[in-house]
């Protein structure tokens, strides 16, 4: 039933034809890790804990992210802001904030749950290590880098003492923040531009 002439003569020509045709096309192989290609802008990468423009943390330790997490990867402990120890503008801040990247499935439900937009995701995808302990990211690993004009907490509210003005960014001493300094392209970065 098979055609011996077609098998021995035509098929090899057809097969190598594909090879030769592909040789003149643009290559799709990425030279990772020597060459790193940016991800899609809304790629779900490592989390980031954002800051207000004066450097105070946006996280209020409400644990809604931990509640939303389907993989139980987030652990939060709240605490009270005290006189001389202010980390966030309101009463409460996240004293302990851990994300376990061994468990995290990067689904982004925590981002949806966050009531203050404190938690967003960056495009950073290099989340591998040779031990388990280092894959539990602490608050210090997750906090957004300090942009110009930001001061590391704890400190008093620098924008305004009044909460309404603070959240609206009134009497803002910082005129503009360049987005080029930011490492990840975050939703937050765009907001403060």
């Amino acid at each position: 039933m098979t055609n011996p002439i077609r098998e021995t003569l035509w098929d090899p020509i057809a097969g190598f034809g594909v090879t030769f045709r592909t040789m003149f096309r643009k290559t799709v192989t990425e030279q990772y890790p020597f060459e790193k290609i940016p991800t899609a802008p809304r790629f779900h990468g490592r989390h980031q804990l954002n800051r207000w423009p004066d450097g105070l943390e946006k996280c209020i330790g409400c644990e809604l992210c931990a509640w939303a997490c389907p993989a139980d990867a987030i652990y939060v402990e709240g605490a009270s802001n005290v006189e001389g120890g202010r980390y966030s503008p309101g009463e409460r801040y996240g004293r302990v904030y851990q994300i376990n990247y061994l468990r995290c499935i990067l689904c982004g439900l925590c981002i949806e749950a966050c009531p203050t937009r404190a938690l967003t995701m960056t495009n950073e995808y290099e989340l591998a290590d040779n031990n388990r302990a280092d894959l539990i990211f602490e608050k210090s690993d997750l906090l957004a880098p300090l942009l110009p004009g930001m001061v590391e907490a704890p400190h008093e509210m620098l924008i305004s003492d009044d909460h309404h003005d603070y959240y609206k960014g009134m009497q803002l001493p910082i005129v503009g923040v360049s987005s080029g300094v930011s490492t990840g392209s975050t939703g937050e970065g765009r907001e403060t531009e």
Partner: peptide, 9 residues
């Protein structure tokens, strides 16, 4: 108990 935990966990 202020701010120490949430009821759901």
């Amino acid at each position: 108990y202020r701010f120490r935990a949430r009821p759901f966990d």
